[in-house]
Write a protein that binds this DNA or RNA. Structure first.
Lengths: 110, 110
DNA sequence: TTCACATTTCAATAATTCATGAATTATGGA
DNA sequence: TCCATAATTCATGAATTATTGAAATGTGAA
């Protein structure tokens, strides 16, 4: 991941609606959700959601695919991994002892 | 870490200067850097840097301590860990098999 | 075709964020 | 005390971002 990508991803996650949408999509895994379903779940208008999904999309944090006249969105796990990798890559600065405990203690809490 | 904290942290990291400053501080570890040194390294004015350091500070991503008339800044590793933990905690959504590969493949690249 | 549905795109306004110059606070030394 | 240094705070204008209503696109069914 490049710096520009990372900046886009952080910006995308720094907006309440987008952070919630991303978290929601993450919990859905490969089931994903239709844009309309997400809009209903989040209680926002379709065009507002659409604009924000577009931001997440360009940041590489979600993917989508058309299903008839609806569009299904998924969290992009690869994108998230790239972002975390970027952060952790820059965290070491030649000092592996700094990263080691940081990575070791990470759990998903489940 | 709460949602509000996470939003602050993502917003803080979504600005080019702040992302660079944070990465720089991470590489310095416990040596940290004086505010003036950072401003010089980044080639920005003191008040511009100060405003941005303040954002990182309130986001819990850096710490500081006074040294005479100078102020030394450090990356807050705990804050970073909290942020990553927040992301990963919400990534599982009851499906540990989603997180496992994400965490396992993470390395700091050194 | 024609219509309805799901979603996106567009244009405009409202809100937020950013860098700057000027002023202020805090510390140390003469 | 008085001055110089290090950094922060404040107010302003410029730039960016977000939400909305309206219009447009794309798909499927009658």
């Amino acid at each position: 991941m490049e710096k520009t990508n990372a900046l886009s991803a952080f910006a995308a996650l720094s907006q309440p609606l987008r952070l919630e949408v991303f978290r929601l999509l993450i919990t859905r895994g490969e089931d994903g959700m239709l844009a309309g379903e997400i809009a209903h779940a989040m209680d926002v208008r379709q065009n507002t959601l659409s604009a924000n999904l577009s931001v997440l999309l360009h940041a590489g944090l979600v993917r989508n695919t058309r299903e008839g006249r609806a569009i299904r969105y998924f969290a992009d796990t690869e994108g998230l991994r790239g972002l975390l990798g970027f952060l952790l890559q820059d965290c070491c600065g030649g000092r592996p002892e700094l990263c080691q405990p940081l990575i070791e203690d990470l759990t998903c809490g489940c």
